[in-house]
């Protein structure tokens, strides 16, 4: 990959990597640092990384950086807030549902959050997520199933409590 192609990656993927990271750690400054580190690692390896695989390389790097950051910051598992909007299946507008989903997302485990973000935000296949996270494809399917099942429970609970 040339330096020009690297710059294309910055313009195309920086926002998406940042969203993926900040949805996991909810710390904007740390999320920027992780994005910076991820692109710096890509730049160091840019001559050996093919342009077509740059996106996967970026998300893989960001994921592992995120894991390292999580290990250093146990606050990752803290549930920050209780959803203020109770969500019913078909009774909430788009913005309310969006906020509820984000709230439910934060109640998931790290691995569930990571794989479901890669699946829903970036549209990666189970196999691709397995490649990024380093876990098996079957495990990815299990984590995603559990993530959706938990979100359903959380949102249902929000609706009942709301």
């Amino acid at each position: 990959m040339t330096s020009e192609q690297y710059n294309i990656c910055v313009r195309q993927f920086a926002d998406r990597v940042f969203r993926f990271v900040i949805k996991n750690i909810r710390n904007e400054a740390d999320a920027r640092d992780i994005v910076q580190q991820s692109f710096e690692k890509l730049w160091v390896k840019h001559e050996t990384v093919e342009f077509e695989k740059a996106k996967s390389y970026l998300f893989t790097t960001a994921y592992h950086t995120l894991i390292d950051w999580t290990r250093k910051n146990s606050r990752m598992d803290v549930v920050e807030q209780t959803p203020e909007v109770v969500m019913g299946s078909n009774h909430y507008n788009r913005f309310e549902l969006k906020d509820s989903l984000n709230s439910a997302l934060q109640q998931l485990s790290n691995i569930q959050k990571e794989v479901i973000l890669l699946r829903d935000y970036e549209g990666y296949s189970y196999k691709e997520i397995a490649g990024i996270t380093g876990i098996s494809e079957s495990q990815v399917k299990v984590y995603i199933f559990r993530a959706r099942k938990n979100m359903h429970k959380i949102l249902t609970q929000m609706e009942k409590t709301g």
Binding site: A14, D15, R16, V17, F18, R19, I22, R32, V35, K98, L101, N102, A104, L105, I116, L117, D120, Y121, R148, M151, H152, L155
Partner: peptide, 12 residues
């Protein structure tokens, strides 16, 4: 099944 949507307002 709930599917998450990327928040386009979040930019680097």
């Amino acid at each position: 099944l709930f599917y998450l949507e990327a928040d386009e307002d979040i930019v680097f």
